[in-house]
Computed example of a mutant assay.
Amino acid sequence: MMILGLVQWMQPVHGYDVRRELLSWSADKWANVQPGSIYHGLRKLSDEQLLREVATEQVGARPARTTYEITEKGVAEFQSLLRGNWWSVAMPPDPFMAAFSFLPALPRAEAAAALRNRAVQLAAGIKQLQAALGADWAEHKPPYVSWMWELSIERSAAEIRWCERIAGLIESGASYLPPGMADQPAPGWAEGLSPGAVDELSPGAVDELLPRPEGKIAN
Rank of each mutant, 00 (worst) to 15 (best):
H140M: 11
P195T: 01
R83T: 02
K73C: 04
A205L: 08
L209S: 03
G180P: 14
S152P: 05
P178L: 14
E208V: 10
V7D: 01
A61E: 10
P104L: 11
L23V: 06
G204T: 01
Q8G: 00
A61S: 10
V206K: 09
R52C: 09
Y39D: 07
T67D: 13
W137M: 04
D183V: 03
S152A: 14
G173M: 07
P211Y: 05
L51M: 04
V54G: 09
A109E: 13
S24N: 15
V120H: 02
A138R: 08
P187L: 13
G36F: 14
E21H: 11
I166S: 03
W162R: 07
G60R: 06
Y176T: 02
A119R: 03
G180K: 14
D136A: 07
L45S: 04
Q79R: 14
E139Q: 09
W149C: 14
G74V: 02
H14C: 09
S152D: 09
G41V: 11
P213E: 03
L42H: 12
N85M: 06
A90M: 12
P35I: 08
G168N: 02
R161L: 11
E164K: 05
W30D: 11
P179M: 11
L4V: 00
Q184A: 10
W25F: 15
V206F: 08
L23G: 06
L129N: 00
A111K: 03
L209W: 08
L177G: 07
A138V: 04
G125E: 03
A158L: 11
R116I: 02
A109H: 05
A157N: 10
Q184G: 02
Q11W: 01
D136N: 06
N117R: 15
A31K: 10
Y16T: 05
K216Q: 12
M148T: 08
Q184N: 06
S46K: 08
A61T: 06
A167W: 09
F100L: 12
R83C: 05
A113D: 04
A138S: 06
A119H: 05
V120G: 02
G74S: 05
K44H: 12
E69Q: 15
L133C: 02
P93G: 11
Q79H: 13
S80Y: 07
W25D: 12
F78M: 05
D28K: 15
V18R: 10
Q130P: 00
R65D: 06
P211C: 04
E154W: 10
L209G: 03
I160T: 04
E57A: 14
W30H: 15
W87R: 15
A157H: 08
Q11F: 01
G5K: 00
E154Q: 12
A90Q: 15
D199E: 09
L103G: 02
A190M: 08
E110Y: 10
G5W: 00
R19F: 15
N219Y: 13
M97E: 15
N117F: 09
A111C: 12
H40V: 08
V7Q: 02
K216S: 07
Q58Y: 12
F78N: 05
S194C: 09
V206E: 07
G125Y: 03
Q184V: 10
A113E: 04
L122P: 04
G134N: 01
S202C: 01
W87Y: 15
Y68N: 05
R108G: 03
L133D: 00
D207L: 15
P179L: 10
A218Y: 12
Q121D: 07
L151W: 14
P12V: 00
A157K: 10
N32H: 13
R165E: 10
P142R: 07
P92N: 12
F96K: 07
T56M: 12
